[in-house]
Amino acid sequence: MGMVLTAVAVLLLLALVFGALLGYAAVRFRVEGDPIVDQINALLPQTQCGQCGFPGCKPYAEAIANGEAINKCPPGGETTIQALADLLDVEALPLDGEHGEEKPPMVAYIREAECIGCTKCIQACPVDAILGAAKQMHTVIVDECTGCDLCVEPCPVDCIDMVPLPVTTRNWRWDMPPAPPLAAAERGAA
């Protein structure tokens, strides 16, 4: 009987000690981070294009936090999906083709001779990257344009083109070297 009591006492003591230790650790090493929605939002490309089916990046970030799939953002592409997968510790899925394909970075270009100055594109632009006033020709601030496509649809005279960002010697980049023969053969076999 004494033995049993001792054992119970010891176990109790151990439980108390470890409990206290865990409790202390939880307080001491608490990770102070952004709320998860902000962290997700920070990884999204902020084009506000709505291709994911949500009215902007923040809403999609909220949806992801509530369990929405992470592969619905074509402008972010593979990089964003990978980053989201790393953040949320889930599997990186291939981009959902239903929402569009990954494209090189684009900017809107207004054919200024054809612009009638209707301001419809200005109202559509989510980042205020189009300058102009009623009956005045409009123009795109290239550095601010996210290439979201949202201004193309409202234009009554179809004078907005989406063009890829021009490559110059300053933004030209080296590609990774061609795949070594083992990978090449693998691809050929696949």
């Binding site: 023969p181 083992l182 053969a185 693998e186």
Partner: peptide
């Protein structure tokens, strides 16, 4: 494994 045999 469909690798170039002689190469390796």
């Amino acid at each position: 494994r469909k690798r170039p045999v002689m190469f390796f």
